[in-house]
Design a protein around this nucleic acid. Structure first.
Lengths: 201, 201, 201, 201
DNA sequence: TATGAATGAGGGTTCATTCAT
DNA sequence: CATGAATGAACCCTCATTCAT
């Protein structure tokens, strides 16, 4: 390998790990599989990552950072809360569909919490973004007077559910557009205000 | 363990398996862990279950059937679509919170898709129930003219996300009540129809 | 079970053990298989036999004794050495074909020697019988002047080979009659045809 | 073991396996025993052989091929049927005495018939060789008019019996020379002494 | 006599990790 | 940097044996 092979190797390993981990899960993936997918020796992997866990963590972090950046660039400048929420949902779901590996983000194996701190941090950040938008929407009178925090968690939960569905029930993914519609407009018919009220309290 | 404690050994094993599987995942859980949690020998476990997979499957099936029954008894007789949807959401989330082990239902560790058929069957059934309610609501004019199938998948996805959150981010679970509110009423303010339209396009 | 069930049980177990051991070998046979074949509980087997080894040994002994008796009754009174040898060979091979379980006799597993003493005793006895016949034949001038001991061992070896063939290459068992012919007459052509003919029939 | 001793690890494993398998049989031999006999770790064995069966098969095949080659080189060019048969018997028995492991060839532990095809193939080949010699002998008038096929099977059986005796009754192996004598000359006295004599010495 | 639940050592096999080269 | 043979703990599972009933 040439001088730059170090950098290349690391990248190749990460790519391979991404593929293998997201296909087989943490426990199901073996270092051998990752190494051979990366066209490197087993020992070679340990040159760049101290152990399996570190490799996994690095991967998670990378994914999360990438996604986080994506969200920021595509949402941050949108003024209109309605558009912002829609964009977020669309972006999130579209990204998830393309990067199925995001499923890693949702991994739950090996005695709970594993990369859990990293993940929580990420979730918190995401929540912050949505919550900001929702709050703005309420303030500006476009959104109903609702609990921004709760609404945010619901939206996040729905996103989370979508990601999981990709693995668990991929034939029944919902459409991003319809999701926006539901989140914004709700199920109840709009002329009849009373009924909506009934439910709201 | 007493030589004659056999009567409840099976139950003890199932309880232990539930605990261990839902904490460590399928691959992460070992038969030894399950056995010792159940206060039985390894061999003892194999007296009741042919192998790890069968134990897992039994567990999944049991959970799913129990939950399915619960849904049916608590939803089936509700006429009002609004109340029915609300009840479903409330019931689902409440059940999930109590039976954290429902997380098993969402297992994903690839290369290991063996309970997937059972799960899909369950999902399909659940979807059928919701879709029926939504369709009824649309027909009776209480719900907006929307795609019942899609709406159903969104609701299911949100439920799924909630379950996953229990493991991944348990400090930020959304409230069932607020979830009902959002699903039914949406985010947009009710007097202003135009804006809603904009999004709906 | 009735009063005599004890005796019946023991017999049933031995029959079952015979079947199972000769089909699967010592290591390959499990006490469970034997018990269930004997329609008795596992514990039941241990009522009659202290352990697997004892059961096996009992079986071997039983087989060997039965065979030994058979040999004695069918050979001992034959005066003519030629007829005696022929009878022995015919009897041996016929018995082996019918009682495939005799294969047990040839078992070689679990660190050599196991029932080896019993077997050696049996072999010795058998050898004694043959050797006696051969010696008599030599003395009476019917057989060539050969080493009776060696000839005996060869005959025994051939018998042994036949038994093994039943398991290892059952489609190519040699005919007892031809075996007698070869042992008595040899391969080489004789100028003196008469004697050979007697045997050849 | 040194980390770089790899060159002969495979050989060491095969040697160990040979020893252990032929002492304890297939079922009775454990991979752990083999590994420790080979002074390697358990995992190490699996570096060279996918599993126990493959290891066993490799061994069998190796033995059979080696023996087969030996037979061919030492028999094929002998014209005289008498000498050919004698050579075959001598060679076979001598080889068996030296390579006691040939006992593997005779393995029998039922429910475990997996090397049986390889063995049958080998037996068939061997039979072919002998049968050819015998047939030639008959044609040339040196051997009696007998059934070549049957005679062959008897000779093979006797060889088989010898191998088994090595394990089962090693103190009473017959002498190869006497075996030749018996097979060729038979037990019965010959008026035509010359031919018999030739063989006897 | 008879049962069969329970035990636990041990078997085959995998895999993260190390280290001499 | 890179290799891959080697290690050994741990995994799933089987089975001879025991013992309360």
């Amino acid at each position: 390998m040439n001088k730059r092979s170090g950098i290349n190797s690391k990248k190749r390993i990460l790519d391979a790990a991404l593929k293998v981990f997201s296909e087989y899960g943490y426990k199901g993936a073996s270092m051998r599989m990752i190494a051979s997918t990366a066209r490197i020796s087993i020992g070679g992997v340990y040159l760049y990552f101290a152990n399996k866990e570190e490799l996994y963590l690095t991967l998670i972090k990378e994914r999360l950072d990438d996604f986080s950046a994506q969200v920021k660039t595509s949402i941050s400048e949108i003024e209109d809360p309605v558009k912002a929420i829609s964009s977020f949902i669309m972006m999130y779901l579209e990204y998830a569909k393309t990067h199925k590996e995001l499923i890693l983000t949702q991994g739950r194996e090996h005695g709970f919490a594993f990369a859990i701190d990293i993940k929580r941090e990420f979730f918190k950040e995401q929540r912050g973004i949505i919550e900001g938008i929702v709050a703005r929407g309420i303030q500006s009178g476009v959104f109903t007077e609702c609990n921004a925090k709760e609404v945010t968690k619901i939206i996040m939960g729905t996103m989370r559910g979508f990601i999981l569905s990709i693995v668990v029930d991929p034939d029944n993914l919902f459409s991003p557009k319809e999701c926006c519609r539901l989140m914004l407009g709700g199920l109840l018919k709009r002329t009849n205000r009373a009924e909506g009220e009934k439910v709201r309290r």
